[in-house]
């Protein structure tokens, strides 16, 4: 009896050691980034690594705002991300309601249009899409990026899967109570779909915030650039200013970290309930 207990304890310790070791590896680059962001560029590569700088250079964090228009980049990215995320949530959940709960002609054909493109990499049609936007005169505008990111098949699919799991009787009962479809969507479906909406918010926010190829193709004017290409520009201009580059990187990470941490408790639930697990 005592022997088995000791063996269980041993395997428990092994589990903890493994998990902690993996977590350290996963987070090490972030720790290094944070540590380097408080150093002089010439001290960044000193080995063995001084994880906590003895004289932290907080000036790095004030200097980056004057070296590049970092505030403008963050403003541009926030603007884009918020508009795209709101449009995505609104139009996807709106369309998904019809696909999940209403009957109308050509429903399956229209839905097939979405499904057929869900696995289609954007890179396959990015060139014609760019030509189309140029034709519309949307080249070098934020509107182009909004248009290409706000109406995705993925959003409609995810929301529809979730709405399918809500019993039809709930809608029927609401109809008998005299609600119209718009009221049912707003007062019954939306409040129930918090996990799916959070999942979609995380996905859209993260994709838009971190998008690189899209802004790189569409935005060539500095004043329009997003944080990702702005940061990239900074890196190629000041390639030896390691401390500053790391400080700017830390700043670029913070908004995503906040959104992610505030929504992550919905996330596993959202992935599970939206049928994303297959």
């Amino acid at each position: 009896m005592r022997k088995t207990k000791r063996r269980i304890d041993f395997s428990r310790i092994a589990v903890y050691v493994t998990i902690i070791a993996i977590t350290v590896i996963m987070l090490l680059p972030f720790a290094w980034m944070l540590s380097a962001s408080l150093k002089l560029s010439r001290d960044v590569f000193v080995f063995p690594i001084e994880w906590i700088p003895s004289q932290p250079r907080w000036e790095n964090y004030t200097e980056i705002w004057t070296k590049i228009p970092l505030a403008l980049f963050i403003y541009n990215t926030s603007k884009l991300t918020i508009i795209v995320t709101l449009l995505q949530l609104l139009t996807s959940s709106f369309a998904a309601y019809a696909f999940a709960k209403l009957r109308f002609p050509y429903k399956n054909t229209l839905f097939l249009g979405y499904i057929a493109t869900i696995a289609m990499p954007w890179q396959v049609y990015m060139v014609p899409q760019f030509l189309l936007m140029r034709e519309f005169g949307l080249n070098n505008t934020h509107l182009a990026l909004i248009c290409l990111q706000a109406f995705t098949a993925f959003g409609v699919f995810l929301m529809r899967q979730f709405y399918m799991s809500i019993p039809d009787e709930l809608c029927e009962a609401a109809r008998i109570d005299g609600m119209n479809e718009y009221q049912i969507w707003a007062k019954i479906m939306l409040p129930l779909s918090k996990p799916a909406l959070s999942t979609l918010t995380i996905f859209t926010f993260v994709t838009t915030w971190n998008d690189f190829l899209g802004p790189m193709i569409y935005l060539t004017k500095t004043e329009l650039k997003t944080i990702q290409i702005g940061l990239r520009m900074f890196i190629s201009q000041y390639s030896a200013e390691y401390g500053l580059i790391m400080a700017a990187s830390v700043v670029a990470l913070i908004p995503v970290l906040i959104v992610f941490l505030s929504l992550q408790r919905f996330f596993v639930e959202g992935v599970a309930s939206s049928g994303l697990k297959g």
Binding site: I22, T23, M26, L27, P29, F30, W32, M33, A36, I202, V206, W209, N210, F212, I227, Q228, I229, L231, R232, I235, I245, M246, S249, V250, A252, L253, V256, L257, F260, Q264, F267
Partner: peptide
């Protein structure tokens, strides 16, 4: 474990 997935690609690539 999940954090690298959401972290900005430019920032982590440079690190």
């Amino acid at each position: 474990m999940f954090f690298p997935y959401v972290a900005s690609l430019v920032a982590v690539a440079v690190v």
